[in-house]
């Protein structure tokens, strides 16, 4: 069974994009602004995994776009061959890959575009789209069988 908050920084997806803060009025905003992505020092950030980073509340990592989604991709770890096609083409940095292994999907940032399902090369696909309301166990129990090659 996959853990939903798997490999997450505790700050992930706290805010709604629209209502994260009490926003300033149009006549109170100053020209230009500086938004720090991290609390404190940001040196060597490329060497840190998401769960090790100290995100500030201005980083969009702490926001969520989960409400954009109508359908969600569900990941079946039994079929996956860790090819990482989904990781390289995910537009929303929502594929959680650690140590060359695909571990799951970041449902706080996934917008349900279905690109990962399209690029998945396994048979049957190890990522499939299900309705947002579907729970994981039901989705996994409906997984299709391996398709046989059609003879020409």
């Amino acid at each position: 069974m996959q853990d939903l908050k798997l490999k997450a920084n505790e700050n992930r997806g706290l805010h709604q994009l629209e209502a994260g803060f009490d926003l300033l009025g149009w006549d109170e905003v100053t020209q230009g602004s500086v938004l720090p992505s991290f609390e404190g020092d940001a040196t060597g950030i490329a060497g840190l995994k998401a769960e090790e980073r100290d995100y500030s509340h201005h980083n969009s990592y702490t926001a969520t776009v989960a409400s954009w989604r109508v359908k969600k991709p569900v990941f079946n770890i039994d079929v996956c061959i860790d090819c990482q096609n989904c990781w390289v083409w995910c537009p929303d940095s929502s594929i959680l890959s650690r140590d060359k292994q695909m571990l799951g999907i970041d449902y706080d940032h996934c917008k349900g575009c279905e690109v990962c399902v399209e690029v998945c090369p396994t048979n049957p696909k190890s990522l499939l789209m299900f309705s947002e309301q579907e729970d994981l166990e039901t989705a996994l129990s409906q997984w299709p069988e391996k398709k046989k090659k059609e003879k020409k």
């Binding site: 490329a46 060497g47 980083n59 969009s60 929303d92 929502s94 890959s97 060359k100 706080d108 940032h109």
Partner: peptide
């Protein structure tokens, strides 16, 4: 194995 520096949302 690279760590994303472009965040979601």
């Amino acid at each position: 194995t690279n760590n994303d520096r472009f965040e979601g949302a």
